[in-house]
Structures are given as structure tokens and as C-alpha cells.
Design a protein around this nucleic acid. Structure first.
Lengths: 235, 235
DNA sequence: TCGGATAATTGAACGTGTTCAAATTTTTCT
DNA sequence: AGAAAAATTTGAACACGTTCAATTATCCGA
């Protein structure tokens, strides 16, 4: 609600950009919050404490961020930018489908590592079907689309022979697979999440072999059945 | 903490059973809470309101239930009992693997239908890796085990030819599949969740065909790879 | 049946995330 | 530069889930 005003201002006149006073406090609050979450954990960090440390009244935080959970969304967005960048490197180097997928998944796990502690909280929020942070929600469609695009890149640049019908759905399917791995990662408290790494390496191998298998002509009927279902669900 | 006393009492002496005063208020609070959740939703139902409607002080609720979320766990347990019962019927009738799986999944969806509204809240809580309600947590291992046992029953009673190595892991895999369908169901706000029904019917078909496929001898290497991974992850 | 022990219940109080009307600062326009 | 408008900031207050010391009801053995 309040933010709407901010948006309008940013559209009608220029200002509201990085330099302006408001945007300055916004960053200050955000950086403070992220730092404190990192040091003491999410639940243990009070909105009052964040405000105090940022030298600001509690209410100010709510002017810039809709809720405490929305502060966490900042992590999310930051993480996404990092992914896109670090994966681009990998995709420039590798040509085999398996290596591309392995590289991308490896990068994603590496990028996420520092945030493992908050992932639980983020996930708890994101799991709520009502939440805009939910990866399946309409609000996060742009982010989801971008994320799927990353896997489209993985497929596109690979020199594997994939039937067009499968190729069209593959990015979304790989994204779903990637969500599964992340789900495992969130619950993985082995040191350095090495269990997730093992799972990922094994499953990438399996996924690639399944793709090869599905591309064979005797598999056409089953493949068509699966693709029909996906099309059907999309309405 | 407080509950420990209750448990000890229930073990050392008898009493604390259905008749006793304490157990009476416990049910009263629980029934009131479930009814109010049903009428107004979870977030909108206040602990104070529950207590007041039950004719009890707010503190009393916390003597019998550790938290508001633990009141929801009651739904969970209740649902599980219903599943076990209604699925038993289906499993007595059907012999083909596909029909057994279809029947069980259908029953589960039917049983859950009245609770669709709260499923989101339950899921939000259950998604927290810290939560005892999390289906992957140690605390819910008994429930998980029982649930997997249901799918073991599905496999056991079927007259499909399944290699022993796959047969051993299949119940857990089917349980995982079932969790996926439930995840979809939670996010499904189509009328009567008919999209989930469609998804379920299609995917059961696919799952069964995959099982048949995996049982073929040319698939032995891939099958072994998958099963190795599962064994590996179990430590 | 009585009295001690245990279980159950109370309700005020705490700390939390959050809201909001009022005050203040910043920006915009003439 | 100055005044009007808009954005920002304040901090007291609210409602909530929850805790806990004190109180009352219930149970059980002698």
C-alpha cells in the first residue's frame, strides 16, 4: 500500500533513485537486517533491534518493507542475480548436456551455501500457498520464468539429440528437478551439505540417462503420454 | 514440558483416560478449536477466542497443547487414521498394481478434501525443517513409517512382477510420489481440486508404466544406479 | 472420610510483529 | 527563495501467541 506511493513517484518524476534520502534509509535498513540475520539468526533478530541498530524508528522499517518476511525476500533476489551470473560462465565452457547440467547445479549449490541457515525460514514462508514468495505463485512468475530460462539455456546449448516435443518441456521439467534438489538441500544438515552434493551428482547422471532413454523411438508412446499430461495441466 | 507430567501420570497410574476431568477439557478445547478453524480459518482464530468459546482461560489451552500449531497436528493425526481405514477397503478389493495405487491415491484425495482450506497452514508449518510436523523430521518418523507401510501394502498385494531390488525401495518411492501429489493438491485451487485428480490419474498411469519398464532386464543397469543412489543416501 | 499430593486452571504480564495518526523532512513548482 | 505537496519518520498503541507464579480442583492412599 505504502509502497505504491513510492512506485508512482518513481514513475511520474525521476528521483527516488539510489541517491535520494528515502532510498538511502531503505538500503541502510536492509543491510542492517541482513547482517543481523546472519549473526543471530532470523527468529532471534527483532524488528525493534534492526530499527535501533539502523538508528531508525520501528515504523520506518514498515514504510520500506511490508513485513519482516519481506526483508528475507531481499536475500532471494540477491541470490538470483548471483546465480544468473555464475551460471553464465559455466554455460560458456561446457557443451555436453550432462556437464552443463552438472555445472549449473553445482554453481547453484555453491551460491546458496552461505544462506543455508536462512533457507529454512525462507522456505517456511515460501511454502505458504498464499505467500507471494511461493515459487508457484503468480507474483513470482517473473522470477520463475527467469529461472526456467536458465535451464532452457542448459538444453539449448547442449549437443544432445532431443526430440522437439520433449525439448519444449524439458526446461520446466529440469527446473522442477532443481526444486526437488533444493528441497533436499534445505533439509540437509550434513557438514557442508555434502549429502546434497552426492544426491545432485547421482541424480544428474540419472536425469541425463532418462532424457536419452526418453528420446529413443520405442519410448515415444510413454513420452507422448507424459507430455500430454503436462499440456493438459497447463490448461 | 508440561505434557511430560501428563505422560508420566498416564504411565504410572491409570487415570488420565477418557473419563478424567483433564482429558475432558482437552477434548473440549480441541473440538472447539477445530470447529473454529473450520468456520473462520486458522489465522483468524485467536487462542483467546478458542479459550473463551470453550469456557476456559487462555493458559489452559497451553497446558493441554504446546502451541497453536500443535492444535493443527490433531487434524493431521485424525486424517491419518481415516486414511488407513478407508484404504484398507480398497486394498481388499483390487489386485492389479495400477488399480491398487489408483484406489489408494483416490481415497487419500477424497479423505483430505474437507481439509483443503487448512492444508496451506499445516503445510507452512510442516515445511519448516525445525518443525516436528515436518514429514522428514525424526519426530514424525512413526507417522512416515506407517504411511510408507500403506504403500508397501499396495505393492505387496499386487500381482505385478517386480524385481526384488526394486520392490524393496518401491514403497518409499511411492510415498515420495504421493507427497508430490499432495504438494500439488495444496496449491490447487480449482473447484473441488479437480486438477489434482487429473494429475493423479495421469501420473498413476505413468508411474505404473515406469515400474513395468524398470522391471525389464535391459533396464537393469539404470535401475541399479538409481537403487545404489537411494542406498547411498540412507548412509 | 480425610489430608496430602498431584493435576488442572487461572489471568495478569511479557515480548513480538505490526499499525497509524501525527510530526517532520525532503522535494517540487512558481 | 518560499510555500505547497509529497515523502518520510516517529513512537505510542494494538493484538497476538505465549509464559508463569499463584490458586483451585481432583485424585488416591490410609
Amino acid at each position: 500500500m505504502r509502497r505504491k506511493t513510492l512506485h508512482k513517484r518513481a514513475l511520474t518524476v525521476e528521483s527516488g533513485e539510489a541517491g535520494s534520502k528515502g532510498e538511502q534509509t531503505r538500503s541502510l535498513i536492509l543491510e542492517t537486517a541482513l547482517k543481523m540475520f546472519g549473526e543471530r539468526g532470523y527468529e532471534e533478530t527483532t524488528m525493534r533491534a534492526i530499527a535501533e541498530m539502523a538508528g531508525v524508528a520501528p515504523g520506518a522499517t514498515y514504510y520500506h518493507f511490508r513485513s519482516k518476511e519481506h526483508l528475507i525476500q531481499a536475500y532471494y533476489e540477491r541470490m538470483h542475480e548471483i546465480h544468473a551470473e555464475s551460471c553464465a560462465e559455466v554455460l560458456k565452457k561446457e557443451r555436453a548436456l550432462k556437464d552443463r547440467l552438472l555445472g549449473v547445479m553445482g554453481q547453484i549449490l555453491k551460491d546458496m551455501a552461505p544462506y543455508h541457515q536462512f533457507a529454512g525460514v525462507l522456505f517456511k514462508t515460501a511454502a505458504d500457498p498464499q505467500s507471494p514468495l511461493n515459487p508457484f505463485s503468480p507474483e513470482s512468475e517473473p522470477a520463475r520464468r527467469a529461472s526456467i530460462e536458465l535451464f532452457a539455456d542448459v538444453v539449448r546449448g547442449a549437443k544432445a539429440k532431443i526430440p522437439p516435443d520433449l525439448g519444449a518441456e524439458l526446461p520446466a521439467l529440469l527446473w522442477l528437478y532443481h526444486m526437488g534438489v533444493v528441497l533436499f538441500w534445505i533439509h540437509d544438515d550434513s557438514s557442508g551439505q555434502h549429502r546434497t552434493r552426492r544426491l545432485m551428482e547421482h541424480t544428474v547422471e540419472i536425469v541425463v540417462r532418462l532424457i536419452q532413454l526418453a528420446s529413443l523411438s520405442p519410448m515415444r508412446p510413454l513420452r507422448k503420454t507424459v507430455l500430454k499430461m503436462l499440456a493438459d495441466l497447463r490448461e
